[in-house]
Design a protein around this nucleic acid. Structure first.
Lengths: 145, 145
DNA sequence: TAATATACTACTAATAAGGTAGGAATATAG
DNA sequence: CTATATTCCTACCTTATTAGTAGTATATTA
């Protein structure tokens, strides 16, 4: 169960937006440099976050990205789902009841459902604002190097 | 975060051993048929479980596999770790402190650590015996079709 | 019009997942 | 002692996914 770079990079990127919200649109160029992510790759990740309605973009000179909602309205589960897919843990039989004849009684399926719930529980309990606050506590105001 | 077939098949296979513990060694041929898993692939999964000390094997005619310990002594986290790797969620910076300069203050890393804990919490709280019991409750005595 | 951003789409390289295949070693039955 | 059944070992292979790269189009500002 490897966490993809998509999700890891994407979370770091949107967290930068949350951190620098006051400063107006933030350019991907900046994020890419701060976070050591390829600009071109980052563009794709942000496109995903945009179509999930989590960020908005402004084109052209002085453009960039901003959060589409307040940081305390964006749950980590939203970010995660957008980037990683709808269910935290991909097990075919969880998403498709017809996938397997044993579905109804299958105890292993139940286990994966429990695990899934546990993961989503954590991610639903945290917002971007929580992370910004945590970072501030650490004196890590900009979250940048 | 896709759960590999290794882990899914592996858990189903060792659960069959737990369910049929009383009947002596169970042959992979049987498990493969019941669980619809390729015999050759299953051989590999069982080899992994064997080297993790979770099952024992008996060669030759009338041979097969048995659990290496009582079903209530085998936690799902043991099975999972053996098959999926040591940490529930693979994020390089969790396993390698030197991986990233931001490690100490990184709030996203903290999130992944929390998620990891949540997953392991579930898997550590369950044993094979628990699953056997659950299956019995459902009247699904053999866990087979 | 020049410069600066995002938007869109296609391609590519590397890695991992999910097996297959063949034969060697070992145990049991007769 | 031989036939059969089973695990053991190792190598290979195919497909899908990940993680990017690249190029060009479009929009905005100054």
């Amino acid at each position: 169960m490897k966490l993809s770079t998509r999700t890891r990079y994407g979370l770091r990127a949107i967290l930068e937006l949350a951190t620098n919200q006051a400063k107006g649109p933030l350019q991907l160029k900046i994020i890419a440099r701060n976070q050591d992510i390829s600009l071109k790759y980052l563009e794709q990740l942000m496109a995903t976050l945009k179509s999930a309605g989590l960020v908005r973009s402004l084109r052209g000179s002085k453009g960039g990205y901003i959060l589409a909602k307040a940081a305390n309205q964006i749950k980590l589960s939203d970010v995660f789902s957008a980037l990683e897919g709808p269910s935290a843990i991909t097990v075919e039989c969880l998403d498709d009841n017809g996938y397997c004849v044993r579905t109804a009684d299958c105890v292993t399926r139940q286990v994966w459902a429990q695990v899934q719930q546990a993961v989503m529980g954590v991610l639903e309990s945290l917002t971007l604002q929580d992370l910004v606050d945590r970072a501030k506590e650490k004196g890590n105001l900009d979250y940048q190097i």
